[in-house]
Design a protein around this nucleic acid. Sequence first.
DNA 1: AAAGCGGGGCC
DNA 2: GGCCCAGCTTT
Length: 350
Amino acid sequence: MKQGEFAVRLIDWQQRHGRHDLPWQVSDPYRVWLSEIMLQQTQVASVLSYYDRFLQAFPTLAALAAASQAEVLALWSGLGYYSRARNLHRAAQRVMEALGGRFPSTRAEIELLPGVGRSTAAAIAAFAFDRREAILDGNVKRVLTRVFGIEGFPGDKPVENRLWSLAESLLPARDMAAYTQGLMDLGATVCLRANPKCDECPMAACCVARAEGRQAELPTRKAKKAVPVRQVMMLLAVWQGKVRLERRPDRGIWGGLLSLPECAGTQEAETWLAQQGEGDLLPSWPELVHVFTHFRLVITPQPIMLSRRSDDASQEAGACWLPIDEAIHAGVPAPVGKLLAAWPAGGNGK
DNA sequence: AAAGCGGGGCC
DNA sequence: GGCCCAGCTTT
């Protein structure tokens, strides 16, 4: 696609098919700013009624600055992400006090306000001050990665930097409001995350993702981070054919189930044995890996043969000693059942 | 239930 | 300056 063609098509499309009745499509920076903050992580449909009510209560930046935080939060109630409201209020007071009530007009200055990052500042600068500044929110990232076939997770620094450069290189010489609104409209109404309406898209003819049928693969999703690994030693302590089980706490994994005693390693196992009585640690068994949705548990099974059990060892709350074949069926977690079944005499060779 | 989201906060 | 989080929604 030729340089400049993207903007020409987008502006033309915005004027024909974009949204034109949104109440914040004005040049008052206070109203633009308020809308951009409300629209962070919140969809247009939800924002509309809040926006009107908020402006009725605080028609100007001065009115907002003069309000109490409680009044501001009351009007934000239901929109969520309340730090946005607190930052908005603080920013209004700062503009009144430090800038004499004049809203800053460059992206760099706007960006200094609390709650305003680079993309939000650029949107305000473009809409309210007609500045040539590029926005790059989630919608725009989706549009750009698809149209230009940009690979890699857009949250990764190198990819994000490339997207910022691209976004800046696409800016038109004028019509910044229509252009910026066009990017937002396209992402929100046509270039949808799932089932994009490519037949309505002004970029369909030049869209890399469309040409390659890869709309579903772009933007590249965040790489699933490696599942965290937890290590635990499980004690298979056997005395007179009975194995030691303990009731797990109600909360957390395997809540309320009977399971084997756990410890961090051999040292602790020695200590545990000394408390329980006398006996020997046998060579530990091979590790057993159990996979949960949110982590991987690596179990080191540590068999212990008790030759003597101290008197108080059976009295502990939640602890019991069960014949191994009973223990297997006592409602233990799956990997524990597996371990018990592997005990040489376990299940009596069945 | 899993991913996505802009900015803030922490290192 | 880079990485992760808090808080909430959408898929």
